[in-house]
Amino acid sequence: MNGECMKFVVCVKQVPDTTEVEVDPETGTIIREGVPSVLNAFDEFALNVAVQLKESIDEDVEITALSMGPPQAKDALTKCLAIGADKALLLTDRVFAGADTWATAVTLARSIKKLGGADVIFCGQEASDGNTAQVGPEVAAHLGITQLTFVSEIEKIEDKNIICKKETDEGFLRTRCPLPVVIACMPTPGFLPKIPNMRDIIKGKRKPYEEWGFDDLGGEEEDYGLEGSESVVVRTYSPPPKGEGIIIDDEPETAVNKLMEYLEKEGIL
């Protein structure tokens, strides 16, 4: 793209630790109090992939970690800087709150344009809170560039083309695609995130960090956040509880007999 060095943007989201999320049965709202926030695991993978790719390229590469979220999402970006992002940008404003995937994509795409574009935009395949897997492709649509989803491995960038392995319903494909591109990353088994050491953390703290709000992105307030969203959540609730299961602690033979009875009674066999 323009400029002298190659640019990567990694879109990261701070998410509540999903193992602890519950719905308040009285109000039907999601209980957020006391639930710890973490960097979305798939985004952490995406960032690791971006850092590795940068290390494997001769050219200069600048990695920007980009997030939209409340002020405390700064923590997720601080972590990204320690892991290896060169700079971080938080899009934070009351106007941005309550965004669905469409409005999130609008906000992220506009900020990427304002950053001067990027050669590769990395996303996680999905965020563990919404599990939609939509933001990446929607950012691609807004920027008018192509997308590769379910990417598990990036081989290399060569002559302004990226070669990677992506998962499909049938297996895997090796694909080549010209830059710029949006890549949605799907962790490979065995992936262990790089744990930043003290030095990385201190180095990270010295790297550039910026926050942008509505005034920086411009447009109309109604393009963003809840107002700019097309999908409306009408109700949240706990999933219907699974009935208490039957648990057998018996000799194998007896236990299997009871299982056979159960399978027959339920019409499974």
């Binding site: 469409w102 599990n131 897997a133 939509q134 929607e138 691609a140 649509a141 319903d169 097309e230």
Partner: peptide
């Protein structure tokens, strides 16, 4: 909501400016 569907649907939604509910 297969791999293909989750690649195609958000791309279509993005281009047409539509809401889309996943999975």
């Amino acid at each position: 909501a297969t791999h293909l569907g989750r690649d195609l649907a958000p791309s279509v939604a993005g281009h047409l400016g539509l809401g889309l509910t996943a999975d």
